[in-house]
């Protein structure tokens, strides 16, 4: 199962490497969001530092929507998904492979976002392990639910509007937890960031399991 999943992941990453949509289009969009937040918050560095953790995760979610749509487009254009199904790879492996592919892309975008945010907002990290662990867990929650919801919203003619309506509420608790954890890691809020990782882990595990169990039912009709 994991070997097949890794094949799907490699395929998705190879397509991204060749098309360079992640680097040429999605990454600049990520930076643009942060710059616009700077304008919207009146260039007040102290406010930007306080709200930075939240802005980081909101930006990540907005970017994730684009990455999810891209991940689904790869399969739905030219009915590529039919060929993938005919190859004998199980839907669970396809789901895991696409989740890992999306996960790695989001991690790259988050790393870029993180560096830019630290520079532009003049932020300093007080707890690096918490930043890394909370980003790893939260991104798993985003990628696992995003892969599932991306397919749910596809092929209905209303994907652009339906995907955010379905996807963003699902990730709302993850954003709250991740923002608190990041806030603690940046020393901006008085919260136990590690405690919020419990919530994030539960969400990540639950959505991954539901995705593994139900992806096959949806992908047949895509």
């Amino acid at each position: 199962m994991f070997r097949d999943a890794w094949l799907v992941t490699k395929k998705d990453l190879l397509i991204e490497l060749r098309s360079r949509i992640l680097i040429n289009q999605i990454a600049p969009y990520t930076l643009l969001i942060l710059v616009l937040f700077g304008f919207a918050l009146d260039a007040d560095t102290e406010t930007l530092r306080d709200t930075g953790p939240g802005l980081f995760w909101v930006s990540t979610l907005l970017v994730a929507i684009l990455a999810i749509q891209r991940s689904v487009d790869v399969e739905t254009s030219d009915s590529a998904i039919d060929r993938l199904m005919l190859s004998g790879i199980s839907p669970t492996s396809i789901y895991l492979g696409k989740t890992i592919g999306l996960y790695l892309q989001l991690i790259i975008l988050e790393a870029l976002l993180f560096i830019v945010m630290v520079v532009l907002f003049d932020m300093s990290v007080v707890n690096y392990p918490l930043v890394v662990v909370s980003a790893v867990v939260t991104t798993l929650a985003i990628a696992s639910s995003g892969t599932l919801y991306g397919v749910i919203a596809s092929g209905l003619g209303v994907r652009e509007t339906l995907l955010p309506v379905l996807f963003l509420p699902v990730l709302a608790p993850a954003v709250i937890g991740a923002t608190r954890a990041f806030g603690d890691a940046f020393g901006r809020v008085n919260a136990d960031g590690w405690a919020w990782l419990g919530l994030l882990s539960v969400i990540a595990i639950v959505y991954t399991l539901v995705g593994m169990l139900t992806y096959g039912n949806i992908i047949e009709d895509t």
Binding site: L148, I152, L156, L166, Y207, V210, T214, N217, I218, D221
Partner: peptide, 9 residues
């Protein structure tokens, strides 16, 4: 079918 998955979540 799709609504069912959203309902389960």
């Amino acid at each position: 079918k799709r609504a069912s998955v959203v309902g389960i979540i």
